[in-house]
Design a protein around this nucleic acid. Sequence first.
RNA 1: CGGGGCGUGGCGCAGUUUGGUAGCGCGCACGGUUCGGGACCGUGAGGUCGGAGGUUCAAAUCCUCUCGCCCCGACCA
Length: 565
Amino acid sequence: MRWSQLFIPTLREVPAEAEVVSHQLLLRAGFIRQLGAGIYSYLPLARRTLQKIERIIREEMERIGAQEFYLPALHPAELWQETGRWTEMGDNMFRLKDRTGRELCLGMTHEEVFTSIARNELRSYRDLPQLWYQIQVKFRDEPRPKAGLLRVRQFTMKDSYSFDLDANGLEKSYRLHEQAYRRIFDRCGLEYTVVQAESGAMGGSESEEFMVRTDAGEDMVVSCACGYAANLERAVSCLVPITDDPAERSPELVHTPQQKTIQEVSEFLKVPKSRQIKSLVYVVESKPALILMRGDHQLNESKLSRAMETDQFRPATPDEIRDLFGADPGSLGPVGMQGKGVAIIADLSLQNRRNLICGANRDHYHLLNVTAGIDFTAAFYDLRRVEAADPCSCCGRPLDIFKALEVGHIFKLGYKYSRSMKATVLDPEGKEVPIIMGSYGIGLERIMAAAVELYHDEAGIVWPRSIAPFQVLITLLGTQENQKQLAKRIYDALNQMGIDCLLDDRDERPGVKFKDAELIGVPVRVTIGKKFEQGKVEIFCRSQRELREVDADEALLEIIRALGD
RNA sequence: CGGGGCGUGGCGCAGUUUGGUAGCGCGCACGGUUCGGGACCGUGAGGUCGGAGGUUCAAAUCCUCUCGCCCCGACCA
């Protein structure tokens, strides 16, 4: 393509609203424009990059035998009511009514629609397995869209769904997807980590996320050199053992005036935080619960959710706490709370601990010598948030925690949708059994944005070759006829070889062409200019920022070689 | 939803405290000189200052309401 005929509105300055690098560069390089909060238009360069991503995805999905569909984005409410997600999705779902008042929504994901096809058409175990996918627009009314393309309200997703007879089949479909995803992200040039994840509102058991490490991301990933990696929401770690005073003592009231926080009590009583009990009060499905953590630990609410088997909970208000405990936060504890209608649950780190310190449920007082299992009882769960440098539960080495962006997610759904929507087949014995399902998603624009986050410099974007909008840019500086002819020859030859090539034939000064070239990030640039008089052209590799002078006759060969580097 | 910030030509901003009828840089158009790292000179176009209402002789500026966008938090398949 000729630059003079392409719409590439580059910007010299960074638009004020762009904070993260990928947003700034994609705007400046003329890939995207914003239409509203979390709503973006994709201009020709972005289309080219996204189409390359799509193509890679299609090839890899076909490779595992998946079949492409194209389903509606507009869904009748009844479908979502069947699975309960019409309510469950809450305000995150865009809802609308048609002219007759019928309720509809814009699809956030397509389990319901794909399952509705499956239940109507799949009759026999002989029809299984099926791997179905599509590349579709999704709508989510995010409470807070942000960071350019990283969190938006309309985006493109490759979503696929597997339908199997049994758990073994699901395992197979799931692993096929894992492999396909690895190949997709490898081919897109991304560095990523596969982490154990929560399945959240998708339902289901096993789930892994494909994460790209970047500070622009919103997730926290815990990882270890041994290969262990998990989303912070479900990460586990070991604890350095603590030896308590073994003596058998009874709780002892101690005056702790104005000492409320763990820190204050620790200093006041000269006792380490790890020997205190942190008491948190939550309201879980409208019933009060006392949650006990070690003094120096943080509660992980995802783990609480799993332990309580509900996501309906919130911290109690100060008034509620006073009514229940007769004291304010800062002086709370489990002793004497048995049988008062307050559920007591505790983190595993408190199990078998002796002679600890907790609030006395009386303002300005704490209790010494509180022993788990004797002075209070509790249901124990893993509720602790992993901290950086905790020992890895697999190998004991210190864990690393970093921010990351989720670009893909695979789930074993199990029977959640097939049961609620009655998608069944007859098994070999002629018995009707529900289909077991998996679902798998990749965010296309996120791949594009993640690549920019990962690969850029002060001058602009440095695209991985596989998803660059063009692979080669011919920067024509000279105005002489023979230079133009050379440019044209190279351009035609590359096109004939199927190499995407952009010819900068604009009537612009060299400086402008060079700056724009680096901004849009094309991997290989050929400059035809003043060196041409000595029969030379220049080849510039964007990633290494390396300039090579080569004979004009060899230009084509050298370009191909540069692409291979 | 809570907290904070910002809306002034296409982009980046000043002007708002102290009301007096809108300015700078970039970009854009035309002419000329330039032409290897975002050129220079000259001329010019382009803004009901997010919107509505109010105060005032007079509002970008003060007051009320409202809309939009960004950031932090809450939330997040």
